[in-house]
Nucleic acid binder design. Sequence first.
DNA 1: TACGAGCTCGGTGTGCTAAG
DNA 2: CTTAGCACACCGAGCTCGTA
Length: 465
Amino acid sequence: MSTEPADDKEIELAQTLSNKLHGQDSQILNLQPLNLKQLHSLLVTLGVYANPERRIDLRNQSINSQSSARSLILTASKVLFNWPDSFHQMLDQIQKVSEKKNTARLGKRFGKFYEYLYTNYKGPEFGFLMHEFENYLENNWKHAIAARNKRLSRRLRSGHIWVPVHTMAVELNVSRKAISSLIETGEIDSSRVRTTMGREVICINRLQRELIRSLILDRVDLKMAAEMLGLQENRVCQLYEHHLLGKVIRAKENASGRWQLSRSSLEQILILGANLPEAASDGDLIGLRHLLHYVLNKPFLFPRLLMSVMKKEILPISVCKQERGLSAWQFERSHFKHWHIEQLKGSRKGAFTIPEAAKYLKIKQEVAYHLVGSGYIKCVMEEDSQLRLVTLSNLEDFKRNYVFGVELSKQLSISPKHLCELLEHNNIWPISGHGVDGGRQIIYRRDLVLQRAMKDLGEIIPVRN
DNA sequence: TACGAGCTCGGTGTGCTAAG
DNA sequence: CTTAGCACACCGAGCTCGTA
């Protein structure tokens, strides 16, 4: 007989077992309906599966030997006395063994324990055990539960929160692909397993149902968006390019190959023109349909107009009942005209477009484009219109650092070609021009060497009148 | 603005998986 | 083994985008 003191729990369990023997009430409510044989069998099974090392096999006859029985019962008692948390831990542990299998089969994940559960303990007196196993599945099983698995209760099978994508698609009356794309973009959680043949089974959490519904219902494709706003599709694209439509996934960026726009952001835009009175168009009013057709022809103007409406700088004052969406908006003609002029001129404050810069420098447009393109004239990109703008100081910098060959030849009253040859003799070469970089104008760097050479040439060549 | 190439969507049938 | 339920393949319809 062992001399070590017995564990308290073991004593309590022994008491329970003893109470069982004497037909008295058990302290453990769950075990009450069990007869002694059933209780013993349960203890041995739990004892085996709650041992993380699981060295003992239930089929081995040695299980009934005195030494192993004691440790089994001790382990089992820990599970029963800390019910149900320890039982859940035990199930976690069983699953860990088969975790790398990444299978969604209950039989594979819970191994023989699952078999024993439904062969040895299927009677009503083990109801607490089944109940707790289902509780565990309900909270921890992140895969589908087959509707045909009649071992499990109807409630669990029909109410399990992890369901295949297909099931959710049917419930919400949307396509499986629509849900899959939400999984791809990381908007909803999923759990995926691969079957032995390599098929992928994806499950999603049913609690996300309303989220999925709202995400999918909020999605609108380009055509639908254009219809809602009463615009052409390219006008909707312009608004997108100026970031006025909230979160948008373009067809190109998207595996599904379709635009995904948010219905709610479109509605927010439509609200800007809601509750306006209807009015027939007359001389004082100008409709957006007309403006889009004849006036807002630069790609940045329409987005700017919408931005101005959002900022309440200009507001539609009525709607035309023949048109839908934004096209119906009507502005006061003079007010719009003022806004339009401001957009084209006022906002640039001293900056030139490239043709304007050409005029300022008295050169041809193509020369100006070449100078900007090759970096001799610095420019900035206007954010919304994508126009290259040149500031006055950029032009002055250019005039300070460079000089046109034509200008120099005029100073000496000789032909540009002659000037070119004379400067070449002094080892001065143009930085731009025909034969240099394809430019149409000969340009020299305005530096000390050039100044000295010009001074020398001025003395050699008498200035003709 | 119209048109065609090339793409995806969605419905349906087929075959595989996982249960009893 | 049989069967329920799921994923995949296929195909016509419709959509998007680039080009003229």
